[in-house]
Simulated assay, not measured.
Amino acid sequence: MSRFSEADRDRIRSQLVEAGRELFAQFGFERTRISDVTEAVDIGTSTFYGFFDSKEALYVEVLCAERDRLESRIDEAVATANTPREEVRTLIETMFREVRSNPLISRLIVENELHALQEHLSDAERESLAASIQESDLSYADRWVELDAFRFDDPAVVSGLIRSLVFTTRSRETIMESGGTADYEAVEDALIETIVAGLFVDGDDGEGDNDGNSDP
């Protein structure tokens, strides 16, 4: 590996992650081979192991990068909200949209593939992954529960509720295949509105308790 400069190593690692992202998204983890990734980057398979210990280690980095992208998109979307109630709705809508449009996000949140991969990682990699997962938990809930208008005072419950909602994205295909309503968007919108309304005291959107800033 000494033949690579530090700049070369950074470039190749980035290329491996990007190639892995495209291949994992298209074919999934099991059907993607290390040789597929190395061919896309134009390096030898043996060189791959100078950057990652295994295909699992690469997949973890890809999923963590997708999680970071998701958090950035959520932050950008929630920043446009004017009240805490709008923040909650925007966050849920953004998560739904990302899970439906990005197979990696779906596998990350719905399939919980990061958890499934942990047994294939080294102790150091597992510790690093556990720390990053803890740091990335929904931080908005910590602020929402401090509002007088908010019905719950445990941020873990709020985060769990919102994450559980994401699983309803699976019902779209089931409803369509069974001949259910074609206007699924209206059903989903009603579900989100019901959840958001239930999180706040009737008639109070929390605007008086929060200045609308959405820093996590």
Rank of each mutant, 00 (worst) to 15 (best):
D189L: 04
E87V: 05
V88H: 01
V41I: 08
D10Q: 14
S164Y: 12
T94V: 01
P84Q: 06
T83R: 00
E188D: 00
D75F: 09
R69H: 04
R172L: 03
D123H: 09
F200T: 04
E188Q: 04
E93F: 04
T38F: 00
R33V: 07
G180L: 06
F24W: 03
A190V: 04
F48T: 05
F200S: 12
S139R: 15
R9C: 05
D148P: 10
V88K: 03
D183K: 02
L165I: 11
F48K: 13
W144E: 11
V157I: 15
R21G: 04
R69T: 01
D211Q: 06
E22T: 01
T90Y: 09
D142H: 11
D209L: 07
L58A: 05
R33K: 14
E66Q: 02
E173K: 12
L114Q: 00
N213T: 15
E119F: 02
A7F: 00
R126I: 05
R89V: 02
G198W: 07
A190P: 00
V37A: 10
L91S: 11
F96K: 02
E71W: 12
L165A: 06
I133D: 10
R97C: 09
S159V: 14
E93A: 06
R13S: 11
A57S: 13
Q26Y: 00
E66C: 03
A7T: 09
T47N: 02
D142V: 13
D42S: 14
R73W: 12
R3W: 07
S214H: 15
R73L: 10
D202P: 06
E93Y: 03
P216T: 10
F152P: 13
T168N: 09
G208N: 13
